[in-house]
C-alpha cells in the first residue's frame, strides 16, 4: 500500500559520519576546546563586560575623523574594485570570453584572488606602500574584484545569448556585443553585487586598522592595547550601528532595483 522506502547507502553514511567525527575530534583537540574552561572563565567575561560598561561617550568626538576615513576607504575600494571587476568577470564568463586560454587564465586568477582574506591583502599592501589608509583602499580594491567578479561572471553566464548574437550578426565588434547585447541584461545584478561588496567593505574597513591599514581600527588597536575597555566598547558600538545602517540602506536600494 505504501511506496517502498528508498534504500539507504550505508557505506556512504558510515564513511561520512566517521569523517565528520574524526575531523571534529582532531580539531577540538588541536585548538584545546573545553567546555570546562569556558564555564570556569565565564566570570572573567562578566568582569570584562562590567569594565566595558558604560561606553566612554566622551571619546566620541575623537572617533569622527577615523570614522570618515573608514568610509573613504570603503568607497575607494568599492569603486576601483567595481570597475576592475568588469573585465575580470566578462573574461571569466564562458559565453563571452575571448578563447579558452584567456578564460582558463582569468578563471584561475579569480580563484586565487578569492583565497586570501581581506586582512591578508591589507598586510601586504601596508608592507608595499606603507602604513595608512592608502594601503587599506588598495586592499579593499583587490578584495572587491574577488567578490564581484566571481558572482557576476555567473550571472553573465546565465544571460540570454540571442541579443549578443544578434549584435554580432549585424557586424558588431566584440566590445559592441558586450556593450549593447550582454552587459545591459546583467546590469541590475551588477549593481546589487556592487552594493553587497560595499557592505562587506564597510565591515572590513572597520578592522583594517588592526594591521595598520587606516581607519577606525587603528584607534581600536591602541585603546585595546591600553586596556581602555570603555573606549573599545564605544568603538564596537559605533561600528555595529554603522554596519547595520549601511546594510539597511543597501537592502532598501536592492529591493527597489529588483
Amino acid at each position: 500500500m505504501f511506496p517502498e522506502r528508498p534504500a539507504r547507502n550505508w557505506p556512504l553514511i558510515i564513511a561520512t559520519a566517521g569523517f565528520l567525527a574524526a575531523m571534529t575530534w582532531w580539531s577540538a583537540n588541536g585548538i584545546g576546546f573545553s567546555l570546562i574552561e569556558l564555564l570556569c572563565n565565564i566570570t572573567g567575561g562578566g568582569r570584562l563586560i562590567s569594565e566595558s560598561w558604560p561606553p566612554d561617550f566622551s571619546f566620541l568626538p575623537r572617533l569622527a575623523d577615523p570614522f570618515l576615513e573608514t568610509l573613504n576607504i570603503a568607497v575607494i575600494g568599492t569603486v576601483i574594485g567595481g570597475i576592475l571587476s568588469v573585465p575580470v568577470a566578462v573574461l571569466a564568463a564562458r559565453n563571452l570570453t575571448l578563447g579558452r586560454v584567456v578564460w582558463f587564465t582569468d578563471r584561475n586568477f579569480m580563484n586565487v584572488l578569492r583565497t586570501l582574506p581581506d586582512l591578508f591583502w591589507a598586510m601586504l599592501f601596508a608592507t608595499a606602500v606603507g602604513f595608512g589608509p592608502v594601503a587599506g583602499a588598495l586592499a579593499l580594491s583587490v578584495f572587491t574584484i574577488a567578490v564581484i567578479s566571481k558572482l557576476w561572471s555567473e550571472s553573465l553566464e546565465s544571460i540570454d545569448m540571442g541579443l549578443p548574437e544578434a549584435v554580432r550578426a549585424v557586424g558588431g565588434t566584440w566590445l559592441q556585443m558586450l556593450r549593447f547585447g550582454a552587459v545591459p541584461q546583467a546590469m541590475q545584478t551588477y549593481v546589487s553585487y556592487a552594493l553587497y561588496a560595499f557592505e562587506l567593505n564597510v565591515r572590513a574597513s572597520m578592522v583594517l586598522g588592526l594591521v595598520g591599514a587606516g581607519g577606525i581600527g587603528m584607534i581600536l588597536e591602541t585603546q585595546r592595547a591600553n586596556f581602555e575597555y570603555e573606549r573599545v566598547a564605544l568603538i564596537v558600538l559605533v561600528v555595529l550601528v554603522a554596519v547595520l545602517i549601511i546594510e539597511e540602506i543597501s537592502e532598501a536600494i536592492r529591493s527597489r532595483l529588483a
Partner: peptide, 29 residues
C-alpha cells in the same frame, strides 16, 4: 541573527581572547 552578523569576527575575537585566553579556542568561539 542581524546583531551577530553585524560584528566582524575579529571584534568578537577581541572580546573572547581576554575571557578564554590567547589562542585558537577564542578564535573558534
Amino acid at each position: 541573527s542581524a546583531t551577530t552578523r553585524a560584528f566582524p569576527e575579529i571584534l568578537l575575537a577581541i572580546y573572547f581572547v581576554p575571557i578564554v585566553g590567547l589562542g585558537a579556542f577564542a578564535g573558534a568561539l
